[in-house]
Amino acid sequence: MSDTRIRPMTVDDAGAAERLTAVGYHELDTRMFRRSWPDPQLRPPERGAHWVDRARHLIRTDPGGCWVAERDDALLGVVISFVREKLWLLASYAVVPEAQGLGLGKALLAPALDHGRGCLRGMLNASSDPKAVRRYHAAGFTLHPQMFVRGTPDRSQIPVVEKVREGTESDVDLMDSVDRRTRGAAHGVDHQLLMRQFRLVVSETSSAQGYAYLDDGVALLAATDRRTASRLMWEAIASSDDVLVGHITPENGWALDVGIAARLDVFQEGYQALRNMRPPRPYLPHGALM
């Protein structure tokens, strides 16, 4: 791999990086999937466009955390990390299958980890890939198993959802406040991207606040108490015929309670990898923006 160079990622790399990660994740899903699950599908164009939009957003807002590995003008790997208020986060990390096992993944991750050296905490969503898990563990991350619920809900079990309204840009301060109470750092400028890609709902009472981004289930949810979080998740279930709610740690058992009550199926997959912090709660992170 001596002819491979690792360089900062630019917005012009986003399209090629999207395809690299789509193929890489599909290869991993194909290798790791269980027989009872549907066959893995390559990332569809709409989600690919969202990936490119997100990558360019992160490059523009925190370029120091974004890197690619390149040989002969072809990308072999990509890592996208970013910092929000002393919290280091890993959004995407992939190496093409033919370049794996040669030390490129470790070399590529190194500048992204170095970018977060001044952060108090770290957070990422990890797959079940044993090689990646070992790499995150070696970097000082504690691994917390995650679950997800999916399926067609039993609509007779869905309660009347009250105290939930459509969110707007005027809710950003409220959401950042909830973020700080749950994960220790605000999403800040990331809310602008999330509002472009998902439906935002907010629950606000005299004693509790919370919000959720919805996309055939929950894309991201944060609240100050379990009751508010459950209310938001029920709104997500009521809004979709085919529901997926992922990234559920054992500390967020309220989400399992809601999913099981809606007659959704429960599965275990992947890890929430954390450094110097406990699993956020009540909180369901976005896959890339956490």
Rank of each mutant, 00 (worst) to 15 (best):
G210C: 11
F141Y: 14
P282C: 00
A219K: 09
Y213M: 01
V160F: 03
A69L: 01
A139Q: 13
G253Q: 03
T168C: 04
E27Q: 09
P285E: 06
H57L: 15
R35S: 07
E162T: 11
A186V: 01
S240G: 12
T182F: 07
D13N: 03
A94Y: 00
G118K: 15
V95A: 11
L220A: 00
L214H: 14
R7D: 08
G217P: 09
A262F: 04
Y93M: 15
V149R: 00
D114H: 15
T30M: 02
R31W: 10
D29K: 06
V68W: 00
L221T: 05
P153M: 03
G259I: 04
H57V: 13
V133T: 12
G77F: 05
L193V: 03
D179N: 10
W37N: 08
L232Q: 05
S177L: 03
D241P: 06
G65Y: 00
E169F: 09
L108D: 02
A112N: 04
G24R: 07
R183A: 07
R71E: 04
D13S: 04
A126M: 09
Y93I: 02
E204R: 11
H187A: 09
R34Y: 14
D216K: 11
I260E: 13
F148E: 07
F33D: 04
Q209I: 10
M123V: 15
D62M: 08
P130A: 06
L75D: 02
G287Y: 04
R263S: 11
L58G: 01
D216T: 12
V23A: 02
E251Q: 13
T21Q: 00
A212P: 02
Q157R: 13
W88Y: 14
E46M: 10
V172I: 06
D215V: 13
L58T: 05
E204D: 15
D215M: 08
W51H: 09
S2D: 12
V266L: 13
S177D: 07
A262T: 02
L102H: 11
R43G: 03
F267E: 14
